[in-house]
Amino acid sequence: MKNKHPLVAFACLLLLMNSLSLNAQTDLFKDSSSPVKEKVRSTFKSTRIVSGHSVENVGKGILDFRISHRFGSISGGTYEFFGLDNAFTRLALDYGITDRLMVGISRGTYDKEFTALLKYKILQQTTGPSATPITMSYVGTGMWRTIKNFDPLASAFKTQNFFHSHQLLIARKFNDYTSLQLMPTMVYYSATPKPTDNNMMWSLGVAARQRVSKRVNLTGEYYYQFTPFDGYTNSMSFGVDIETGGHVFQLHLTNSYGTTERSFIHETTGKWGDGDIHFGFNISRVFTIVKPKDFKNKW
């Protein structure tokens, strides 16, 4: 009986530990995972809604080659082949330096205009614990109009060459089907039609995306100008985004001829009611320039 006590005590201790650890050993099949924070993806299908920007960026190391066409007014009728006789083309390259920072350049035939842009994602919408409700981006665009002016009497407004625009894009993807975006915008003009006009032109854009099938989305875009120049109208556009593998096709109808911020937001002259509607499309193709780390080695 001498040895009994330590052994009993040891056995009891082990039993206790055993029961504790048995309790700790829960069934692994029971789901114990907690919700995680996740980025909200593809609020819009492309970096552009119709003419203006969406909160989307191209990813890090990805180059997006974009071809935009905008045709003449449908009201030109059969003589103008419903506007298809007059096509403007814009070629653009956008590149993702990081997942949040994108830069881009373009050249368009409309006013022989060059642009350079910088877009930075300030906030990213997330789901899960301590979620961020919106995505917010800044986009700044510099525009350089190079068309030669042959009219000696043209106003300074018509002959100025440099413009810059600044936009805040605030978007929320409500579900897999619907996204909305607001775009407070300022475009700077060095010369205006009247001396009393503001050099800083303010507008508020609103845009939406509605998914109708796996590969088809409808979009809309409208910019309200607070103090429009005389004779200019607000830009309103509707589009269809169609995804096919590596491409996104965007077909649209709009009352704007230009596709750069200054030309479509503040220099739209067309009116939907008068049939000044232009057909246009964007084609975007992405190329991977810098492969992510995990893809550098052969699998």
Binding site: R41, S42, V58, G246, V248, V286
Partner: peptide, 13 residues
């Protein structure tokens, strides 16, 4: 993660 962002979107959606 995919090499191509568009493919990643299609995969998810």
């Amino acid at each position: 993660k995919f090499e191509n962002q568009l493919m990643e979107d299609h995969f998810n959606e």
